[in-house]
Structure formats: C-alpha cells, structure tokens
Computed example of a mutant assay.
Amino acid sequence: MKTILWATLTANGNYAQSSPEHPPKKEALTDFETYAKAAGNFIVGRKTFEGFQASGGGTFTDIDIVVVSKSLKEIPGIKIAGSPQEALNYLQEKGHKTVLLSGGADLHNAFLEQDLVDEILFNIVPVLEGKGLSLLLDTVNYQYKDIQLLDFKSLGSGVVQLHYAVGK
C-alpha cells in the first residue's frame, strides 16, 4: 500500500495556517479533493479534522475518512484510529491501495518518524508567514533523508506543487 503525505506550505517553508481572514487557496483545496477522490480515503489528525468540520468540510461522499486521535472516541461515519499504523491497517483491510495522509504537522511527523510515507506532495502557496509549524526531522530515521523529485507543476494563482518519492 502506498502512503502519500499531502501538505500545503508557505513560500518560506512553514505549514500554511488558514483562518477566516486567510482561507486556504482554492487551487490547493481542489487538488486535495482530486487526490482524496482518487485514493477513496484520507487520514487526518484531530485538530485538522475539527478545523475542517468548522469550515464546512468538503464533498467527500463515498470516501473513507480516518481521524488519528487518542482523545476522540466516536464521530458518526468516521473511523477513529489511535495510531498511524492502526489507520493504515484499517484502510488496507478496506481494500485501499493508496492512502492520502492529509493533515496536521504532528500527524505528518508521526508517520515520517515511523517510516510510513512513500511519497510527498508539497503545495507551495505564495504567502510568507512569520510563525508556523514545520516537519521535524530530528529522529533517528529522519535526521537527513534524500528524496527524489518525481514531478512539479503549477496549480494556478502562484501555487506550485512538488511531488517527491521517499526512499525507505
């Protein structure tokens, strides 16, 4: 099973923080929906999922959504997993061949630390933020890691997507 980490970053390398005053770029959201529909699923962290719900969510019918959380107990129609591996096991049992990992720096870091990411899609938005979250490469597995550029493209409105393979 292939796991693709999907993230939106600012031009200065932070995770793009959205708010009502600074909503996510339409091009990045459209791209996410395209990948989620193609995979038939996505995994998200609790905080990102709560933000997703507060903003009205998306049109994700017939898509398996898994929220990784140790504190949530139940969300109708949504699978709650206590760990990255539990989330992957659930989606594999459902027959998925590709998994889209979509939200939260903490969740992304947990998957990377456990060497569970095969590809990365970074959507770079034309924004500079002075404060933000980032990928933390300070574990034994990820103090330094070569990755291979597979593709790059413009999504429009200054949003550029970089697609990388992560060697195991």
Rank of each mutant, 00 (worst) to 15 (best):
Y144W: 06
L128I: 07
V125D: 05
E21D: 08
T10K: 00
G103Y: 04
G51L: 10
L150G: 07
I80P: 03
A11W: 10
A7P: 02
F60L: 00
Q53W: 08
H22G: 07
S157D: 15
G45M: 07
F49R: 01
V127H: 08
V99L: 15
S154T: 11
K73P: 05
K47E: 11
H22V: 13
E27K: 13
L135Q: 02
S157A: 05
S71K: 13
F42D: 15
T48S: 12
S102H: 08
L100C: 10
I78R: 02
V127P: 06
I4M: 08
V159L: 04
A16W: 04
G77C: 09
K131C: 01
G132Y: 07
P20G: 13
A54P: 03
E50V: 04
L100T: 12
A39S: 14
A28T: 14
G57Q: 02
A110Y: 09
Q92P: 09
V160Q: 01
E86A: 12
K25S: 13
E33G: 11
P23H: 05
T59V: 06
G51Q: 01
S71P: 02
S157Y: 12
T48R: 00
E93S: 14
Q114W: 02
Y144D: 09
D146G: 08
K153N: 14
K70C: 04
L88F: 13
A54E: 05
P24R: 04
G130R: 02
Q17N: 12
G167A: 13
F111A: 02
G58A: 07
G77S: 12
N109S: 11
M1V: 04
L72Q: 00
H96W: 01
K131F: 09
S154Q: 09
Q148L: 13
K47T: 12
F49G: 11
F122S: 01
Q92G: 14
V68R: 00
S55A: 13
K2N: 14
Q17T: 11
V127K: 13
L5D: 00
A11I: 01
K26P: 15
